[in-house]
Structures are given as structure tokens and as C-alpha cells.
Design a protein around this nucleic acid. Structure first.
Lengths: 185, 185, 185, 185
DNA sequence: AATGAATGAGCATTCATTCAT
DNA sequence: CATGAATGAATGCTCATTCAT
């Protein structure tokens, strides 16, 4: 219990500082100080700074996908896509720090995707659903990878917008995505 | 002339290395070596490493907007928006290094927006046009800031997609943006 | 009994690791792990790492002299010297790890000769015997300290040679020492 | 000139401290302080601490052999061997610090013999001479490696003895070596 | 302007030692 | 007696920056 608390505290401090100052401008000694532990203690829980970064990034990615995976079994249409979109946006809005770090981490050299199991899994499912949607003339005939990428980019942008403006709106934002990809004859 | 050439060489070397190895993993001495000048010479043109980074980021941002500003005088509609969008996307596709760095720089702790002059200027013009579009029922009644932000995010994502897939497609991608924001009754 | 077993286990583990990796590249926590005890346990038996090293060095030195002391009562001549020499060489050949460590320890900064009791004792006896030998024209008229030092150096070198070459020869090696110091008119 | 002075100063300081405190108990920052330069300066001249140690060890070994190599062409007998022996002993007595370090370095894990060219070269020559001596019944019929090793061990011991006692004697010491290996029927 | 040797604060990491359990 | 999590001083090394030439 207490042990896990200390590790948790270190991860939280790291997260906070990484967002504030950037990963490379945050020293391990500063993380320790922020977490209220000695410099050596950090190395009791993480072999290297890179390990700490990786574990933080991976654990947040997995956490962010937990609820998402439950939803992914249905078929694609306005409602199901909206549900997915909403779930992701809401997670980002409710976990702004983790969200910011996840974005930063994903495109960083520290993200050496190898132990990721869940993530490609969920991506594949989303792609399958999109391809179904295209076949069934619910979605435009675009590369499925373009649509899934667009989905992610749209979510990221919307999360940032909502955090900044603190707006309660959601539906109209989702529709800027869905109207862009829905099938029209 | 010769002086400016040296400064240019340093900026070019920095850009190349920043993309290759990341900003924080690129030492000033390595930049100097790559540029073929002495370590001290870099400090003749830039007070600090941060200044070099800022100047590089700002100059690329400005460069990317040069052509954009000329276009911005017209009125908003499918054609003019498509022109803007196309211009931005094409610049990104044709200057992938500068583009990558610009994205990286914008969300880095080094971008302490303060010396920006041109950028808010052009943003204001885009916002004005969007607001006109909303009033004239060409665009959906959304916050104009949301639309301009969506525009940028869509461009960024599309550039990345095009670079990765080397596709020649453009129009269908633009339409995923425009169909999302165009007025429908 | 059990207590002494634990201490013994620590000393044995330390010896093994010191030879394998060197004293300074062996951490106390590694010694503990090798000995199968907790890190803190080591400090129940030794105040500091230096104390552990000293005690190990001293105890091995004493052990190596145990048999030697029994022999030292006789008079100097080819046979008695050969007996001494042989005893020492054989102990080194049969205890190569302890021997290696002893040599290493003797010339290390950790050997701050102060607690030595037995050692000078035995050296004095050897010196007395040598001085008798000189008086009785059995040995060359050399400083007795030179002869006793030569004795030790010759033993050390020979032990190393025998370990490396695994030779069974002894007598001819002893004679390279004895012929060098025996009286000739 | 000045540059070489700085490097020389660092090597001298390192030598002094290595003997005083041992290699592993001497930090690079202490070496820098002793040499009167900044911590970073050391790394201008040596890539790593290990490189510094290696260069120091190798350069001293080579220096110690310079005069030795000239002598090695003659044939083996009392006089030539005495000349070799004397040369080596005198170098050790005149360079006590370098000598102590060389001994320490030779048997340390830092001596990864690979770039040594001169050293095995000279050893081979000495072995050849000894083998000639054995064939010509000048030396005892012992393994030539034993004799060459004995030579080195005898020199080392004698150097230590002379340094400690400050004696001027030489010839009688050499004879404790030569009488031990010379042919007798 | 240009050079590059020199600086020293700062970093990631280790490890002898302590102490609450 | 025994444990092992926790400590923090110390280490080897880097690098932005300076300055005498």
C-alpha cells in the first residue's frame, strides 16, 4: 500500500513536471523533490529515467482506452461513432494533464512501441468498423486509415478547444466530424 | 551577405539536427560542427540556444504564412477556403522538415509566444472571414475560433497523412473539412 | 554457531566477488545477495565495508600462517628453508582465491596495517633464523630483511607460475631461490 | 605547448593520486582539482576516465622499456643479464611513482592489452635470449617462462627494497638472481 | 568577425549506510 | 537478530556559454 503510494507519487510528480517544463527539461532530482522522496528512491521503482517515462506513457495510454474498448463492439453509424467520439473527448477533458502528456509522449522518441498490446488491438477494431461503414454506404469512400486518423486528430483538437473555452457543447462539434465523412449521394 | 550566409547555414543545420535527433538531444557544438563554424561563432548570431530555437521557429512560421496572407483578401466560400487549405497543405507537403519542426516547436516549452507579430494578424483576418461566412449562412453557426482551430488541425493531420502515404489526392480530403462546417438547413 | 555461519557466508561471498569483479566493483548489496542475507544484515557483522575488507584480508593472512608457525622453530639450512618455502607455496596453490585476494589486499589502500599482531611476530622469527644462517655461513652476507623479502616475493611469483602452468615441479623452483642466497666462498 | 602542458599536468596529478588513494578511490573531479583545471577540461583530453588510466599505464610502460630495447641485442651471460637487470632496477628506483603505478596497472582490469605493440615484442626477445642461454649451458634447464617471470619478480622486489632502504648496493642483489638460475654441473 | 580551449553548473545514476518494522 | 525500503552524498560525464587570441 505505502509502497505503491510512493511510486504513484513519483509518477504524478513526473507527469506534472513533464507537462509544465517538458520531459527533457525535467531532471530526476526535481521529480524526486516534487514527490517528497530522496533522489535514490526514484531508482527503487524505475531502473532509468527512460523507464519512468515509458511506464508513465504506457499506463496512461492503457487507462485512456479502458472504457473505449467496451464500446467498440457495436456497428458504425452516427450513434455508435458519436458514442466513441464522446467517450474519448470526455476522457481527455476530464484528464487534461494525462491527455496532454499522452499526446506529447506518442510522438516522442521515448515511445518505442513494443510492449503495447492493447493499443494496436483497438485501432484494428476501429478500422474494421470504418471499413464496414464504407461498404454499407454509411461513410464516404475514403481510405479507412484517413478516417481513423481524422477521428483522432478531431478528438485531440476538440479536447484542447473544450479545455480552453470550458464550453459544455459537444454535439455540434461531433457533427463537424461526422458531416465531413458521412456518405452523400 | 557572407555574414547572413553563415547565419543561414547555422539555422539550416539546426533544423536538420533538431528533426533528426530532437531539440534537446542536439548540442550547440554539434550544430556548429554541422554548419562548419566554430562553437563560438554560433553565439555571434544568437545570444542563447533558446534564442536560436525561437528564431528558427518564428522564421519558419512566418515563411509558411507568406503566401497565405496574399490569399486572405477574398470572401469565404468553398472555393476560397479550398484555396487557403490547399495552399497550407501544399506548403507542408513541400517543406516536410520545416513543417515537422514547426509543429514540434508550437507545442514545446520553447514557444513562449511574445514576439509574434504577423501571426495574430493573419489569424484575425481568417476569423473575420469565417464570421462573415457564418453571418451569410455559408458556414454552420459555430464559434469562429472553433472553425479556425479545426482548419489548422485538419491541415496538420492531412499533411502528415499525405507525407506518409505519398498520395496525390487532395479534393476529397478538403471536403471532409468543408462538409463538416458548411451550412445546412 | 548459526550466527557464525552467516558471517562466514558473507566473508566467503565477498571473497568470491572481490576476485571476480575487484573490490571496488563489488557493492555491499551484491555481497548480501550472494550470501543470501538482507543488505542490513551485513552491517550487523561489520561496521563498514572497509572493516569487512580488512577482516577478510587479515583473517586470510592469519590462516595462511597457521601451519607456517609450527615449522619455524627449527634451524636454517636447505631442508628447513625448503620446508618453509614448500609449505607457503602449497598453501597458495591450494587456496588460489584466498591467495589472489591476499596479494591484492596487501598492496591496496585498504591494508592500513595496524591491527596486525601475529604477522610481525612470525616475521621476526624468520628474520632471526636468517640472521643465524648468515652468522653460521650457511647464507650469503646480505641484509636479513632483503632475504626475507626475497623469500616472500619468490613464493608469490612461484605460486602464480604454478597456478598458471599447473606444473608439478617444486624442487627446481625452490633451488632458484636457495642457490641465490646460499653461502659460497 | 601550453595545451600539452595541461594534458601533462592532468596525467601527473592522476598518477600522484592513483598511487596515494588507488585508482578507484580517485575521482575525476579530484584529479581536475589537483591539476588546477575545471572538471570538463579533463574530458577535453580524455574521452573517459578509463581512457585516462589506459593512456597513463601504456605511456609509462612504453617509457620504461625505451632504454631496455636498445640493450636487448646482445647475448646472454652474467654481464648482459646484469646490464638488463640494472637498467630495469635503476629505472624503477629513479621513477618510483611511475613504477608503483605500472605494477598496479599491469594486474588491474584496466589493462586490456590490445594496443600494446612494443611490450610483447620485448618479452619475446628476452625469452629468446634465455632459451639461447639454456642451450649453451649458461643457464639452468628451467622453463624459459619461469626464468623471465622470475627476472621481473626479482626486479620488482629489489626496486621496492632499494626505495625503502635507500641502499646503494646493486651487485649483490643481482647475484641473488643470477646465482639462482646459472648453470651448475 | 571568428576561433575553439576552457569553464563549471547540472545531470542520471550508484551505493554505503541507516532504521522502522 | 534480521530485514530491505529509504536515504543523499558522491561519481563520471555533458554541454551551454565565455573569452583570450
Amino acid at each position: 500500500m505505502v509502497v505503491e503510494d510512493k511510486k504513484k507519487k513519483i509518477l504524478e510528480s513526473a507527469l506534472k513536471l513533464f507537462i509544465e517544463k517538458g520531459i527533457d527539461n525535467t531532471s530526476t532530482s526535481l521529480i524526486s523533490k516534487e514527490a517528497g522522496v530522496a533522489t535514490g528512491t526514484l531508482y527503487l521503482y524505475f531502473e532509468t529515467k527512460v523507464d519512468l517515462i515509458s511506464e508513465l506513457g504506457t499506463s496512461i495510454q492503457e487507462e485512456s482506452l479502458e472504457s473505449f474498448l467496451d464500446l467498440i463492439e457495436s456497428s458504425v453509424g452516427y450513434e455508435s461513432l458519436e458514442k466513441f467520439w464522446h467517450e474519448r473527448v470526455e476522457w481527455g477533458v476530464n484528464n487534461p494533464d494525462k491527455y496532454k502528456f499522452m499526446i506529447q509522449f506518442k510522438s516522442s522518441p521515448y515511445n518505442i512501441k513494443n510492449t503495447n498490446v492493447k493499443i494496436p488491438d483497438h485501432e484494428k477494431k476501429l478500422l474494421n468498423l470504418i471499413e464496414d461503414g464504407i461498404k454499407n454506404k454509411i461513410l464516404k469512400d475514403l481510405p479507412s486509415k484517413y478516417i481513423s486518423g481524422f477521428f483522432s486528430a478531431h478528438v485531440v483538437f476538440t479536447v484542447e478547444y473544450i479545455i480552453q473555452t470550458k464550453t459544455k457543447e459537444r454535439k455540434i462539434f461531433f457533427e463537424t466530424f461526422f458531416d465531413g465523412i458521412k456518405y452523400t449521394n
